[in-house]
Design a protein around this nucleic acid. Structure first.
Lengths: 199, 199
DNA sequence: TAGCACATGTAATAAGTTACATGATTTT
DNA sequence: AAAATCATGTAACTTATTACATGTGCTA
């Protein structure tokens, strides 16, 4: 398999590389652990699958952005083709992360299936849409609750950590977004009710 | 032994097909016009490129969801390999659109580069982040203004259209989201200021 | 010893964009 | 006559997920 050379990429594009480097700035990790960490922390705004993580890690090692920590030779996990690999960021990796943090982020064109259906809403009955909006709203109500719990948990478990204020900011975003969606849904439900009553 | 679920649930996956059918419910259109319409209306929550639209249209014709309107033979655009094709929805297409509208929409895992950078924010200087959040906020301020203008324009140009209430709803979502982001950014800018002052 | 969590990796496929090639029609 | 816009289409490429294959280590 041919591995693309990623050592000299001045490019603004965000690849799995930057997120993995960011996680490694917290300490040495295996690919598996990075995935787990993402699920717990960045899942709401950034995810990577194993199918992207492992190849990326190999490329990063080739490019000198990370290195594999030596395990004691007595550790049986250090041997074989399925050996456990604990990655550590190199100075080059740290530089790359720092550079990336300075590049202005680009907005992503997101898709929203509910809005698409709503846009063509006059092709169906208001009750059909109401059910969908209601389910959508419920999903975000649960989100909002989860975010609130997470915020409380974060303050308890991460007090004093330098990352805390930043983790709080990203959780806050999720919470504000969820609240906004819940309120918007409430307004839509009323409007759909009114449309339904007219017919 | 577990049995595979073979219940005939209509495919929940949203392809270019549904959006194109939705647009065709407004009247016969060329592929080019559908793209243009999307840019003006659904761009904020749904986009398709020509590279997806034209192949999809061919498949839809094959599947009997759309048909090509006959142009008068005197029209020179009706001939040749680059002939203009005006698509019209068939009854099968209308049925497919209607079915799809009844399938609960699924949430999409969106990515947000600003949040990812902010998450690793303690690896750089608060001023660097402030500049980025400021630019982000400005971008959404402009969005909000555009949405407000669009709402006014919509009421003027689409009065009486059956789709109007639904188009208003999707515009309203965009506006609410933009407002939420602007306010969140304002709070983040203050926090970053405070962090910067401590150092 | 069975089952689960940990762990690495590849191949197939799906999803989506971009660049290019072509040509007609309309406007300046 | 040039330029812009309308119009269709394909090929190459990038991006990302999913399913699969494989195996280790811990614990009930």
């Amino acid at each position: 398999m041919y591995l693309k050379d990623i050592s000299n990429v001045p490019d603004a594009k965000t690849t799995p590389v930057e997120c993995l480097l960011g996680l490694l700035s917290l300490g040495p990790l295996t690919g598996y652990q990075m995935r787990q960490l993402m699920q717990e922390s960045t899942a709401n705004f950034w995810r990577e699958s194993y199918g992207r993580i492992y190849p990326a890690l190999q490329q990063m090692q080739k490019a000198g952005l990370v290195e594999v920590e030596a395990l004691k030779t007595s550790d049986p996990r250090a041997k074989g083709p399925k050996a456990r690999k604990v990655y550590r960021m190199t100075a080059a990796g740290e530089a790359r992360l720092h550079t990336w943090l300075g590049v202005p982020p680009r907005r992503q064109g997101n898709r929203n299936e509910l809005l698409l259906k709503l846009f063509f809403g006059d092709r169906t009955k208001p009750e059909v849409l109401r059910a969908q909006v209601q389910a959508w709203q419920q999903s975000y109500i649960e989100d909002a609750q989860r975010y609130e719990e997470k915020l409380v948990h974060l303050e308890k478990t991460c007090a004093g950590e330098p990352g805390l204020p930043f983790w709080r900011m990203t959780l806050g975003y999720g919470l504000q977004e969820a609240i906004m969606v819940v309120n918007w849904c409430a307004a839509i439900l009323e409007e759909l009710q009114a449309i339904g009553n007219k017919n």
